[in-house]
């Protein structure tokens, strides 16, 4: 389920990258140390996300009489958009604030993993961390010879 949500949030359907995102989320939920910050009254991220996924199914069944994963992509996207705004129906324990927090958590975890994947890096034309060689040509309009130019992205439609 995380995978499908990640696909919507990152706007990408490539298996390999989505698996990487899911692995990252699992790792974050399993780790023993802190999550930097939390609003008072919001449960720890593990509880928030596990409970949140169940709640998404409850909402899906309520609106479309089907589980979240069985919905059409468009319906899933609509639900995620409503979650961002906290506009899903208030069911037990899931008020507007909690819905928004759930969305934010899922969004943050997905995006940080997605934009750490090497494929995504070369696709957006990011040279990577460059160690030990560093960057010599940092000024406008000139690139180090080994830096990627942006790759053609299938179905994106913008020119290079």
């Amino acid at each position: 389920m995380i995978k499908i949500i990640a696909a919507h949030v990152a706007h990408d359907h490539r298996e390999e990258i989505l698996n990487w995102v899911v692995a990252h989320v699992d790792e974050q939920l399993a780790k023993p140390f802190g999550e930097s910050q939390r609003k008072p009254g919001i449960p720890p991220q593990k509880v928030l996300i596990r409970g949140g996924l169940k709640a998404l199914n409850t909402w899906a069944k309520g609106s479309y009489s089907r589980e979240f994963l069985k919905l059409e992509a468009k319906q899933q996207l609509t639900m995620i958009s409503s979650l961002q705004l906290g506009h899903l129906e208030e069911i037990k324990d899931w008020d507007t604030t909690l819905q928004k927090e759930l969305f934010k958590k899922l969004l943050g975890l997905t995006i940080e993993a997605y934009y750490s994947h090497p494929w995504v890096w070369s696709e957006i034309g990011y040279g990577g961390p460059a160690y030990p060689r560093g960057y010599v040509r940092v000024e406008l309009g000139i690139a180090d010879p080994w830096e990627p130019t942006r790759e053609e992205v299938v179905g994106d439609g913008t020119e290079i």
């Binding site: 919507h8 949030v9 706007h11 990408d12 961002q84 969004l107 995006i111 696709e123 957006i124 913008t158």
Partner: peptide
């Protein structure tokens, strides 16, 4: 997020 963010990041 979604399409909007992806498009920004591609450029």
């Amino acid at each position: 997020w979604g399409k909007e963010l992806r498009e920004i990041m591609l450029e």
